[in-house]
Write a protein that binds this DNA or RNA. Structure first.
Length: 562
RNA sequence: UGCCUCAUGGUGUAAUUGGCAACACGUCUGACUCUGGAUCAGAAGAGUCCAGGUUCGAGACCUGGUGAGGCAGCCA
């Protein structure tokens, strides 16, 4: 391996305290120039944006330091884990572009080795089988200020421990009857060192091991071993494991095996949503949302379905940075990341969400094909033709009979430009019996055709439209934040479910889109001009019915003021 | 109450051996514009939780407070 102290890639990335530690390790040659990270999810739910931050962090470091990145499932608890979650996690990590090559591992594949090591600790007199019940163990663990009490089983002979542990493994005992504990220090100020449990009896079927085992390693016992086995150099995890580090260190030192360096960082919190898997699962189970990938969820699969790009998520992960203090990140940062990306790559298109019919009274009964630019940010994306005719639809909100000051769209007697077409003038308003405007009669000025430069006429506003006889009907789903408050799960009295936003989903069925979108495919992303970015939904779209999800709105400096 | 960790504009992060607070988002102006978008130009906004100390000099170091988060699962 080359003598690459700090690679160019790593030097060009924004610094954070973890990269600084690694830079230092490279200088001191602590790991012989190697960097090996991993992402170790438990397959008990779908991945969310917080996991995405961790994935990007770990993969980004491995990539920049020319190291390796593993995906490893921490599947040590058969009662909560499922294959469906394994599959979704693999899909999400791949989608994010984090390349684990062929290194996809399972903690459960290490059970044999862990069991062997447990026996080694027993033989050293560093672990013992305890007969105490869960309640007894809890009672004897002590409190914040008092030390715990040692179990009567603590000083069993090695032979007896070996025998009992063997029986545990062979299914002689029922769930909870015995546990294997590390023999450390019942008086430690760190609870994790008060003889933590290494194995519990669980007569349960494991999603990959079947019924091979009836004892399962606890996370605390297993996790460090998994990292050690995979020769991980930097075990990056979240803050809540800080207190566990001395325990992992203890196991690794007792076993005298490869000892990764654990580094803890603050998990991502986003306002107006929740990030705990337990709460997300509840939202799914209780049908507050349509599933883990409901576009209102903060899961990776939901962002994907909603139209986010992997690039935007990666960019977001970089923007928010890495530190040790708890933080609440503003959702505006995420919205910025996706707008920035889509602005450059999404094709522009015209769609009328809430149609208002207009008739161009002086336009002939014919159809004209007009040129429209696909993306003004990227002219190489070309142009397309859009049909223009005598009967059109514009947005209801683009006409006001009694406009407020500063409104510069269509008003009675006023003029506005139809994008890529002509300037029209509102001549007559047609209302129904309820006094609602249902149709507008307008005239157009043939001299003002877009692109001809034949008119010097200026208007304040430009409005999008579709041709009535050519437009395609579509369903559009508008999403708002799932919760009405910034931190729904931090209220002392109220449950987070009480803060659910009743208007987080609005379904529009009468939307009319320009005909060029007729053959759009699930996953295709567009900018509906003047509205925002939309993506063809992959779940509800059928052959005869297009359904769009609004990914994010355009910034709106007018709407904000009014 | 014990242990661990953290504390910088509204939000998220910077400030390499102590040298006079930077960047991004957001907000607000203005310019431009056939998207009230994008782009461009600019502005406001913190004196770094508090109090001492070391130093010519502290956001960085020391001491003591205060505040926040985590830990008493056979969850991870």
């Amino acid at each position: 391996m080359e003598d690459n102290k700090i690679t160019e890639d790593s030097a060009n990335k924004p610094k954070n305290f973890i990269r600084e530690i690694i830079d230092e390790d490279m200088k001191t040659n602590k790991w012989q120039g190697k960097v090996h990270t991993r992402f170790p999810p438990e397959p008990n739910g779908y991945l969310h944006i917080g996991h995405a931050k961790s994935i990007c962090l770990n993969y980004g470091i491995a990539k920049d330091y020319k190291g390796k990145f593993n995906l490893r499932f921490d599947d040590t608890n058969p009662s909560k884990e499922e294959q469906e979650y394994v599959d979704s996690i693999i899909e999400d990590v791949k989608w994010l572009g984090s390349d684990f090559e062929n290194r996809i591992f399972f903690a459960s594949d290490y059970f044999e080795q862990m069991h062997y090591w447990a026996i080694e600790l027993i033989k050293k007199g560093a672990a013992y089988v305890d007969d105490a019940s869960a309640d007894e163990i809890r009672e004897n663990r002590g409190t914040l200020t008092e030390p715990g009490k040692e179990s009567p089983c603590r000083n069993r002979s090695v032979e007896q421990n070996l025998d009992l542990f063997e029986k545990m493994k062979n299914g002689v005992f029922k769930n909870g009857e015995k546990v294997l504990r590390a023999k450390i220090d019942m008086a430690s100020p760190n609870f994790n060192l008060r003889d933590p449990i290494m194995y519990r009896i669980l007569h349960a079927e494991h999603h990959r091991q079947g019924n091979k085992w009836c004892i399962y390693p606890t996370y605390d016992w297993a996790h460090g071993l998994e990292d050690s086995l995979e020769k991980i150099t930097h075990s990056i995890c979240t803050l809540e494991f800080e207190n566990h580090r001395p325990l992992y260190d203890w196991f690794l030192d007792e076993l005298n095996i490869h000892h990764p360096q654990q580094i803890e960082f603050a998990r991502l919190n986003l306002n107006y949503t929740v990030m705990s898997k337990r709460k997300l699962l509840l939202l799914v189970q209780e049908k507050y949302v349509d599933g883990w990938d409901d576009p209102r969820m903060p899961t990776i699969s939901a962002f994907r379905r909603r139209g986010f790009t992997p690039e935007s998520i990666r960019n977001f992960a970089e923007i928010v940075g890495v530190a040790k203090r708890d933080a609440m990140t503003d959702i505006a940062l995420l919205e910025f990341a996706i707008r920035e990306d889509l602005n450059h790559c999404a094709q522009r298109v015209m769609a009328v969400l809430r149609p208002l019919k207009i008739i161009i009274t002086n336009y002939p009964d014919s159809v004209e094909e007009l040129d429209a630019v696909n993306n003004p940010e990227d002219l190489s994306m070309g142009t397309r033709k859009i049909p223009f005719s005598r009967e059109l639809f514009i947005e209801q909100t683009d006409f006001m009979e009694l406009p407020p000051k500063g409104y510069h769209r269509l008003v009675p007697g006023g003029e506005v430009r139809l994008r890529y077409a002509y300037i029209i003038k509102c001549e007559e308003i047609i209302k129904n019996d309820n006094g609602e405007v249902i149709e507008l009669h307008c005239t157009y000025d043939p001299e003002t055709k877009s692109g001809t430069g034949s008119s010097n006429k200026k208007v304040k506003g430009t409005v999008h439209w579709v041709s009535a006889s050519h437009a395609v009907n579509a369903e559009v789903r508008l999403y708002d934040r799932l919760f009405t408050v910034e931190a729904p799960d931090s209220d002392k009295e109220k449950d987070f479910l009480e803060f659910i936003n009743p208007n987080s989903l609005e379904i529009l069925t009468g939307t009319l889109i320009e005909p060029s979108l007729k053959n759009a495919k699930p996953g295709d992303r567009f900018q509906f001009e003047r509205h925002g970015y939309f993506c063809v939904d992959s779940k509800f779209t059928k052959n005869e019915k297009l359904v769009f999800n609004r990914t994010v709105t355009l910034k709106d400096s007018w709407g904000k003021k009014n």
